[in-house]
Amino acid sequence: MKEKSFFDKYMVSLAVIICFFVVSAGVVFGTHKLLEYAALQKVVKEKERTEKIICRNSLLLLKQHVFFSENSKKAIKAAKEKEEQEKKKDKEKDKEKKDEDKKKEDNKEKDKDNE
């Protein structure tokens, strides 16, 4: 009877081992890719969340800016009105003073005429 060669003896075993090796490598590689994808998704989600927060914050800042600018416009307007009113008051006061001075001068002239 012819003796089996080394290849014939161990061919099936080797093939099985190689199959297991390839499948295991595939499982490990697949898991690695899956975990990588999950980590990437996590990063993307985190980025989106951060972007949302930044957008919300900048919107709030914009609203604040609008609010402050409107308020400052109002304040400027009120200050101008107040200034005008004060100017008017000053003018009236000046007028009153002039009138009083004129009256005083008239009285003095009258007194002098009487004398």
């Binding site: 080797l14 081992i17 090796f21 295991s24």
Partner: peptide, 15 residues
């Protein structure tokens, strides 16, 4: 096969 049991099991466990 009987000759490949140990190696196959080791590969499974390692994976």
């Amino acid at each position: 096969p009987e000759k490949a049991v140990c190696a196959s099991h080791m590969i499974i466990i390692a994976a």
